[in-house]
Simulated assay, not measured.
Amino acid sequence: MEKSELVLYAIESDIIKKWHWFKYHFEFYSENREHPFAKSIIDSCLVCEDFIPGYAKKFIDDISQISGIDKKTNEKQSLKHYQQLFQRLAELLIIKQVVTYEWPENTKFFYEPTSGKSKKNPELVVELNKFKIGIEVKAPSLLDHIQKRNNNKIQATARNGLTDKFKENEEVTLPRDNPVKDFLISADQKYNSFKENEKCFYGILVIVWDDFIYEPITTLTDKFSGLFTQNSFAKNSNDETLKFENVDSVIIVRHLHQFGNAAGECPLINNCMDAMDFGSEGRSLPNVYVKNPASNGVPEGILECLRAYSPDEKMGAEYMPQDMVIWL
């Protein structure tokens, strides 16, 4: 597909025809100009198109449908759209990074596949000679949480006795951990049929967070309540700890803030070149790999692809679980 074709498809869509958070950025094309934010989206779609035919127009269709409601009409619904768009951008970011990695020859990619009778599907499955890797991408809604984090001096990051004392205190930011639990439940359900029907299948959940990466790390690994510990706050109806056995690992990518900065025409940080720049070894901050203790881990290739490492204190304080943060 030629870039001009995809650009025309975008400016004839509801991104332009209706109220849309990205309308301003894409309208530059109508004037024979190009906004860096829209360019990063269009260019990334075209890269993915080379590996997944039909992907580019489908992505434009997906984001164009999240339109029609501005803040003056319905602020709550409009902000929900804003965060849904970031979820789509997170998917694009990870899919582009995965398909462009130097996999062995004859590696195949399947977009939104299903397995068996199940209709539930992850974003992508990578098929290699001896095994398959499922990639499920999630991004949380953080606007309300960010506002509280910016305004409050105290942040409780894990569920423990201390957190319980803060529940009624509006001046304390409570853990944003339920989305991580929900993401794990969803991914576990999606990968169930793949695990049953494939000889060797690895299920990976990629969570795209903002720059405060200690938050999801704490949610997964905190010794008092971490979702990947025996003391997990996630229980079933029989009060048994949920194991999420179909999810072999979680990879956390610190990037949501880059989308916001790029869309708002603010400077990008951490040597990021544009909204869809995943970064590279030695130039960008590392991402995090958290193995599910109920699984056998994941192939090294996917960790290298996503620049993901087990959290270590040598990586910096933000890569370690925190009980509480006091902002000065």
Rank of each mutant, 00 (worst) to 15 (best):
D277P: 10
E196Y: 11
C200A: 09
W209K: 00
P36R: 05
Q189L: 12
K58F: 08
H145Q: 10
P113E: 01
H255G: 07
K57L: 02
F201V: 10
G260F: 12
F37A: 02
P140C: 00
V125R: 03
D43H: 01
Q87Y: 13
A10T: 15
S78T: 04
Y29G: 09
D62H: 05
N152A: 04
R149Q: 13
A275F: 11
T73P: 00
I16C: 07
K235L: 14
V325P: 02
L89S: 01
M273C: 10
L6Q: 10
K132Q: 12
N271G: 03
I133K: 00
G226M: 02
S67W: 07
A139T: 07
K71M: 08
P122T: 01
S118R: 03
Q322C: 01
S78V: 07
K199L: 12
K199G: 00
C200G: 00
A10Y: 13
I302P: 02
E105T: 15
E49H: 11
Q147R: 12
M315N: 00
P286E: 08
H35Q: 06
Q84K: 12
P267C: 07
I66C: 03
L220G: 06
F86T: 03
P53V: 04
E313K: 14
G279Y: 08
V247C: 07
M1E: 11
P311Y: 01
K291E: 14
I204P: 03
K153H: 10
N152P: 11
Y82D: 09
P175Y: 06
Y202F: 15
L8V: 13
L92M: 08
Y309H: 11
N121D: 03
N106I: 02
W103T: 11
A275I: 11
S4L: 13
V208S: 01
I135A: 02
Q84R: 12
K235A: 02
V288L: 01
D177N: 12
F233S: 04
W19G: 03
Y111H: 14
I326V: 15
W209V: 00
I95M: 05
E198Y: 14
F259P: 15
T219K: 00
H81D: 13
P179Y: 05
F212N: 11
L93Q: 07
F59R: 06
K120G: 07
D248K: 04
Y309C: 00
N246Q: 13
P113Q: 05
I16H: 07
V7H: 05
K80I: 06
F224S: 12
N246A: 04
N261I: 03
V298W: 02
A275Y: 04
T100H: 09
N121L: 03
E198L: 10
I146N: 10
L220Q: 05
I185A: 02
L184N: 05
E168N: 13
Q155I: 14
K167M: 13
N129T: 09
E215T: 06
L184K: 07
P104M: 08
N271V: 03
V325I: 15
N121K: 15
L268A: 12
I66P: 06
E304Q: 12
M276N: 10
L6H: 13
G301L: 09
